[in-house]
Design a protein around this nucleic acid. Structure first.
Lengths: 233, 233
DNA sequence: GAATCTGTCTACCATTTGGTAAGTGAGCAT
DNA sequence: ATGCTCACTTACCAAATGGTAGACAGATTC
């Protein structure tokens, strides 16, 4: 259990190599070295976990040496920090995009959930990292959630407004948010539980899970037209 | 990433020291050494994680040496295995007890959820371990879920029966189970997310979360008396 | 052509890791 | 008293870990 404390990536990579391409999609292609490191680190942190990822192993996968990684990032912690910053920006971006075109009420919720599932299909590591970072606790978790706070604020305010308008059942908005978060993230990242349930985590399965979770959330949240808006119960 | 493979605890501890006290509750008291090791390992695996838990640190906390741990368990993997076996039995026991007195329909779901929250209050490490093990993947995850499979079967069958009876909305039972699992476990173990939402994880908060998640699940699952049982929507 | 900067590498290093080997002392049965 | 098992310890060890120091090749700049 090392420090995993602050370290502002003081080396050559202030934030990212030169052009700061934030959302570099799939496998490492013609990326800068620092971006390739970030990409590999993201994948490994998300799947194997931070502790189980050694700089040597990371470097080997990139056909580099550990020292090259430490040239771009002053320490392993700094790599994690950079990965978090990168991922948080990417995540925010995806959700912001989804929100831009979305309407109100249930449609809006659905748009967000759909975008998360889209993300899960295209870049599963991102959501995996979210899990891992939340598991690691401070300071990593703090960094991540501070970066995502604007989204949380918006979501919380939105839910509250809907509840005030009587279109969604009344709950503590923050706890409701946690519930939605847990459900969606779980449906997307709980690969082992899925397997234990006899459901192989394929692309087709992902679509089914999306359909199911949407139906579930809908009946949990939305107050049907004829239905009366009960205060709590 | 070591082996973490099979190793059937061949040493002095076949399964647990002598009396095989399965559900030894709180802090290590007058327990046998092997049980004290298990208890400490459970706590550390659940909070710090398996990889970040060293045998030395574990031993130090118990005022033992690492070699004493390796006397009772042939390897670190074996400790994990024993912890999983122990925890799975404990978990099963708690849920079985909850199920014994429970009725049918929503009441039954509520009983289970309540028992999980009770567990979260009394022995948070148990649920933390569940998370960690599911993150570790095979073989640890396999072992855990195989041990819990009977419960999964019962739960799945129960949900299906309720849906057939028209008392619960129709979903894929397994996916529904995953959703419930994710929600409840998330509400109970996502400490960092909770903090990010400005909700300190106190005992009082746990009660509020229980109330909230129950209300949420209820409206998600239960088909209201007057409501028509739609096939899918 | 000399100096500098960049990106990578080789060579180390202290520490920590899981694990082995070989005791040691207490209790107990013969 | 002797031998034996039990519980635990000291003494090691090889491998892996994160990290430092310094060299080297290729550009770029003066």
């Amino acid at each position: 259990m090392p420090g995993r404390s602050s370290a502002d990536a003081g080396g050559p990579a202030g934030g990212a190599g030169a052009p700061a391409v934030i959302g570099a999609g799939g496998v490492a292609a013609g990326l800068s070295t620092s971006d390739r490191i970030l990409s590999a680190a993201l994948a490994s942190f998300a799947t194997r976990g931070y502790d189980a990822t050694s700089l040597d192993a990371l470097a080997k996968g990139l056909e580099l040496t550990k020292q090259s990684i430490l040239y771009w990032f002053p320490s392993k912690d700094a790599v994690l920090e950079a990965v978090i910053a990168w991922s948080a920006a990417d995540l925010s971006g995806a959700l912001e995009t989804a929100l831009r075109g979305a309407g109100t009420g249930w449609v809006r919720v659905e748009a967000v959930v759909r975008s998360v599932f889209r993300l899960a299909a295209r870049q599963p590591e991102l959501l995996g990292l979210l899990r891992e970072v939340s598991r690691l606790g401070p300071p990593a978790a703090t960094q991540m959630f501070v970066a995502l706070e604007p989204l949380v604020q918006r979501a919380s305010a939105f839910l509250e407004a809907e509840m005030d308008a009587g279109t969604m059942r009344r709950h503590d908005p923050r706890l409701l948010l946690l519930a939605i978060y847990s459900t969606v993230i779980g449906m997307v990242t709980e690969v082992e539980v899925l397997r234990a349930l006899g459901e192989e985590p394929t692309a087709r399965s992902l679509v089914r899970r999306r359909t199911d979770v949407l139906a579930l959330l809908r009946s949990a949240l939305v107050i049907a037209p004829g239905e009366q808006a009960r205060p709590q119960d």
